[in-house]
Design a protein around this nucleic acid. Structure first.
Lengths: 349, 349
DNA sequence: TTGTACGCGTTATCAG
DNA sequence: CTGATAACGCGTACAA
């Protein structure tokens, strides 16, 4: 199956020069006589020669490969990031190596060892909300960032020296809350997000804080915690309706993300609650499918592609001094119909 | 940033043996005295030593890395494949290297060269419908499969020697058509799919063929070709309604995939056509979001995860004789509410 | 301007 | 059983 590969020696012999000269030509060194240069180049072209990346990696200590550590690329938000990242990397001569670490699975020492000895040039870590306080993640990032530049897409983690480039979901949350409040909602609740309140970064806290700022009521139904999937949306929406049966239920809902929102919409419909007439809803991530939901979903846009491209650029140009840098990206509220803002102000009593 | 890495020489010196012996211990060779073995192993453990993959790659000629060539990992169907593939690969000590080639972009010779010299052990090619007749794809797969085992997720391509493992979308299509026919639909149309009829593999043809088999009417609106995205669904659904205005329009619709179906649902609703009461709809892929659409989408399930895992297993165990093998996977129709089968038979005149 | 020879970290072959 | 040592393919001081 595998044919004999031609090496730099074959080219050198054929061109009647040494391997050093071939290397010089390939690197565009100016310390080569023009005549030699043309001759060597023609041989290279004739054979379609290109250096073996593995050997190059050993010799040069750089593989032109960036590792991407993430939880689950099947999550459409993450796959958008990776798609843009791969495109940007490839345009700069780099490749991406996937490394999924399923959420809930222990990160073992040997896994990190295995990751480290692959000779990667840099690491793009895509974190989820509670990774900021996850001890295993911290240890992993700490070890990895001692070996290569790392950009982590999550808030800074105590004791870890890497570039942190993440979304201002705090601000996004507050904006969403204010949007609903402006539309006249007085009872606003949140669905989904991390199990333990101390694990949510600032996100859920920001939500609660903004509720208080606006002088809105905070009840035991204000934040129904859960996961970040559609199932959570179904389950928690149902539970919330049940818990507030007969009482005044929330009229504004903010979902942890668009998947949760998608599940919530379905459950609400099944229970004959209209969106947005009875309950307004806002999601987060601006997924590809979000504008096709019924109603089209108002959501917090994170500009995933732009974010990912930026990460790759940082990684490629990373200098040691950059470690510790923190970059916060502003979010955008994309207003569609799920929060009813197009219907104008309404009486929500 | 990068600390001095320990090598096999350090271990050998520390253990008072030669590097050959260290290698033997690491490979579990039985030709090592038990006492030596334990001694060396203890040193290995103490230092947490593990061989450098790059050097290993050079020496052994195998990198334990599988390349994944695909069009766009942001497509949720592909990202599901990759997620499962990565999981399966990792469980077997392999890593995945991404290689996106955007649809519509020319595949240049140098790109293939670059791919080839990465020292990959195998290639997982995820094709789209018209790749089967795409000359550039054929050339690429031909070159790649001369260097390493390849499993292509598309029908066999003339002149390319690789394992072909793909879905029986033909059969899936026919099943979908018959399902609608059984429900009483007499005018069934298809939306989306490849631009040129000769590029569709058997898929669109299978649809048309099955229509004829059942003695159903075939009109110029029977197949509205287009792309494979939600936009196509919107555009073509609108165009179809417009083209059949005042006439008898199709009552059963089969979308090229779930994205197209998603767009179609939205457009139909906007034009006050009810699904499934006025038009029944079937998609393809069983995407994560499909059951959350309104109505939940009946769709052809391809068992993406299982498919991907199988590909990886084949790649890892590939023998030269396997090239040329063709594996066709059966599909499943997942019946939900978008085709109205739960409503029972209806009069559709 | 060009060539020689060594290093990169492992594996594998061949003596011993 | 164990140890030198030659690949693996390329980059690069250093020498010429």
């Amino acid at each position: 199956m595998r044919e004999k590969k031609i090496t730099i020696y074959d080219i050198a012999r054929e061109a009647g020069v040494s391997v050093a000269t071939v290397t010089r030509v390939m690197q565009g060194s100016d310390k080569v006589r023009e005549e030699t240069r043309k001759n060597v180049q023609s041989v290279i072209d004739r054979y379609g020669f290109a250096p073996n990346r593995v050997a190059q990696g050993l010799s040069r200590g750089t593989t032109h490969t960036i590792g991407v550590i993430l939880r689950d690329i099947a999550n459409p938000y993450f796959s958008r990031l990776v798609s843009a990242a791969d495109d940007e990397a490839r345009k700069n001569g780099y490749s991406l190596m996937m490394w999924q670490i399923p959420l809930g699975e222990k990160i073992r020492r040997e896994q990190i060892d295995a990751y480290l000895r692959q000779g990667l040039d840099a690491t793009y870590f895509v974190g989820v909300a509670d990774d900021t306080s996850n001890e295993m993640v911290a240890q992993m990032l700490d070890r990895v960032s001692r070996e290569m530049p790392v950009v982590a897409m999550c808030p800074p983690i105590a004791g870890v020296k890497c570039i942190s480039m993440y979304n201002d979901l705090d601000g996004g949350m507050r904006q969403a809350v204010r949007h609903l409040h402006l539309l006249g909602h007085e009872r606003i609740a949140m669905i989904g997000g991390n199990k333990k309140i101390e694990d949510c970064g600032q996100r859920g806290l920001a939500f609660l804080d903004e509720i208080r700022n606006l002088g809105l009521e905070e009840t035991d139904q204000s934040w129904r915690i859960g996961g970040g999937d559609a199932e959570t949306g179904c389950r928690e929406a149902a539970a919330m309706l049940k818990a507030t049966e007969g009482k005044k239920r929330p009229t504004g809902l903010i979902a942890f993300n668009d998947l949760v929102a998608m599940g919530a919409i379905r459950q609400l419909k099944m229970m004959n609650v209209r969106v947005p007439e009875d309950v307004a809803l806002i999601g987060c991530d601006n997924q590809m499918f979000s504008e096709y939901l019924d109603p089209p979903l108002t959501t917090i846009d994170l500009q995933a592609e732009e974010h990912a491209r930026n990460v790759i650029r940082h990684l490629i140009n990373a200098r040691t001094e950059d470690a510790g840098e923190v970059i916060v990206r502003k979010t955008n509220l994309v207003v569609r119909e799920s929060c009813g803002s197009r219907l104008g102000w309404r009486d929500l009593r």
